[in-house]
């Protein structure tokens, strides 16, 4: 292993141990590692945004210009110039007296985003999802196919669709606040809460798995990459 590779492994291990040391208690070693991480992240993202957005998407488009179809002379791409002006107006937030100017580009961003994504969200997250809940109470097609055995498969065939239907209806009722949650309506909303709790529980379980995975990754690094480099040294 060459010295530069060996050194990078030692730095990576030190930073890993420094961050993990916070679990014992807050300490200067952790603070140093945290500051290094924040500083490098800020620098990295500044460079990425500058070279991947500002230069190719704005500067190049203004500098290259388009050619006039009649005279052939270069004319600026007006839309990009407008984008530049809006971008500068956004930065006016830094000056209290001119801060009001930043509301204009902000309104363009909010309006354009809302307009562009209204249909996308309506289709993908509402209409298609709604259609997916219009199900037969029992999954006859799955039963006829005869695929799958065991309790999970049985549940999926006979109770899966019913669970989706009940969960959707009771969940929607829970979020209906124009009527007081009392009597049958209140009981139905309560069932909706149970479905929400199961959903949050599943999300929590997945989050635990995700965080454990990250820790496993670091432990694997320490055991299989860093420790052998410590014992072997560099050549």
């Amino acid at each position: 292993m060459v010295f530069s590779d060996w050194l990078s492994l030692q730095v990576a291990a030190l930073l890993t141990l420094g961050i993990v040391s916070f679990l014992y208690k807050d300490n200067p070693f952790y603070k140093i590692c945290e500051s290094i991480f924040l500083g490098i992240s800020a620098g990295y993202w500044f460079v990425v945004l500058f070279w991947e957005n500002m230069v190719p998407k704005l500067y190049d488009n203004i500098a290259l210009m388009t050619s006039d179809p009649v005279t052939g002379a270069g004319v600026p791409r007006v839309l990009y110039v407008i984008a530049l002006i809006l971008g500068i107006m956004m930065l006016m937030r830094l000056f209290p007296k001119l801060g009001w100017l930043s509301r204009w580009p902000l309104s363009v961003v909010v309006g354009a985003t809302a307009g562009l994504w209204f249909l996308t969200y309506l289709n993908s997250n509402a209409l298609v999802q709604l259609r997916a809940t219009l199900l037969p109470i029992v999954a006859f097609a799955a039963i006829r196919s005869g695929e799958g055995t065991g309790l999970v498969s049985w549940f999926g065939k006979y109770l899966g669709n019913l669970t989706i239907i009940i969960g959707t209806v009771t969940g929607l009722i829970y979020f209906y606040f124009s009527k007081e949650h009392r009597g049958v309506f209140g009981q139905t909303a309560r069932i909706g809460i149970y479905f929400l709790m199961v959903t949050f529980g599943a999300s929590f379980g997945y989050t635990v798995m995700s965080r454990m995975s990250l820790l496993i990754g670091r432990i694997d690094f320490l055991i299989t990459e860093w420790w052998p480099s410590v014992t072997a040294g560099w050549m």
Binding site: Q129, A132, Y206
Partner: peptide, 17 residues
């Protein structure tokens, strides 16, 4: 998906997306 993100993707799976 990462596990933390998977619950967000499951509804798309059920809907065939």
């Amino acid at each position: 998906n990462t596990a933390v993100q998977a619950p967000l993707a499951y509804p798309y799976l059920g809907a065939g997306q």
